[in-house]
């Protein structure tokens, strides 16, 4: 029991020291006010109109996606049918 304590104590001390060093190293840095404002200046907010249009566009996008997928499915079905009727027939 005492041996276990002996081996664990230095480990705990190392961990505590490591935590203390991490706390000392990983400190919050303060970007300058100038940098914060410069970054804000780079941001371009989309207008309300754009946002509503984008939301409506989602519906359109789903329709387009659905249409494309249906078309692809139709093509695959036709190709399979063609292969079944022509391609797989044994030659005499």
């Amino acid at each position: 029991m005492s041996k276990r304590k002996m081996t664990h104590q230095p480990q705990e001390e190392t961990m505590d020291a490591l935590e203390a060093h991490l706390a000392g190293t990983l400190k919050r840095v303060t970007p300058s006010r100038d940098l914060v404002q410069r970054l804000q200046g780079r941001l371009q907010m989309p207008s309300r109109k754009e946002i509503t249009l984008r939301l409506r566009d989602w519906n359109r996008l789903f329709l387009i996606f659905g249409g494309v997928m249906s078309g692809m499915l139709l093509l695959v079905t036709l190709a399979r049918a063609f292969y079944y009727l022509v391609g797989s027939r044994p030659r005499v």
Partner: peptide, 16 residues
């Protein structure tokens, strides 16, 4: 909803 000032507040709050 596209409110620039509101996003500005979020930006100020989280930028750091």
């Amino acid at each position: 909803q596209g409110d620039r000032d509101a996003f500005g507040q979020l930006y100020e709050h989280y930028v750091e």
